[in-house]
Amino acid sequence: MNSWLLPVMLATPVLLLLALGIVGFVLRYQRRLLRQQEQLRQVRDASQQQALEAALLAQEDERRRIAADLHDGVGTTLAIAKLHLSTLGQPNLTEEATALLDQAIGEVRRISRNLLPAALQKFGLPFALDALARTVPADGPTHVIIEQRGQPRRLDPKRELIVFRVVQELLGNGLRHAHAETIEVSVDFGPDYLSLQYRDNGVGFDPAAGDLPPAPGTRSGLGLTNLRSRVAVLHGTLRHDSAPGAGSKVWISFPIPYLPADQKPALTTSV
């Protein structure tokens, strides 16, 4: 047998092992890089989430400040002005001015209430939702139904405010743009989730045309962007279905830890 054979037979497996080692290294290194990339993505997502949450909370803070200024500043000044008018003792001359002041005071109260729903802070989401439904005139062109299912419970105040804003935005968008006869919002207080279903029989919109300016008489569905941001803060999911002339449906679900029945949410919150 040839003397070259043995070294070749010994060296070949070594070379094969080396080749296998290279392939194994590539596989392992690729997995590690993918893991690192995934971790990086998670950190980026978390920071984006934090930024979004901070922006929304700042917006709520600003609303609260404006509401307080309106109520305590402008509202009080208007009330004092009305008082001064009444001290003049000439109701015939001041009647019109008093009526205008009453109207202005009412407007300030309404704006202030919209900016910071006191009912939400004091009595919680179920009560605030009922109050929200009552703000829509019953004899208006759109009939609004807000239905609550399951066992209505209190949530963490921050979550309550976000859920309330979502319902408010859904309702506001519907009333402004849908031209619907009926808007139904159903709030389901599940065991560890809270889901919202919105349905209207209005003009609908083309979900694919979100980036284009809407044609006259149609909706662009851009309000969904704000909704998505709020839903994302609570790690919720949002689905929608609409077509021009076919009304709109929106399904939102949040994973929500409810507060125990014996625990009341703190009235003063950071929001």
């Binding site: 047998m1 040839n2 080396l18």
Partner: peptide, 24 residues
């Protein structure tokens, strides 16, 4: 990678190894 690294030595020495008389 496996095929060519496993056979490169065989081809280097093949003309020395595979004399017709050496069947093994």
């Amino acid at each position: 990678v496996l095929y060519f690294s496993g056979t490169v030595l065989l081809y280097v020495f093949v003309n020395k190894l595979s004399a017709p008389a050496d069947y093994a």
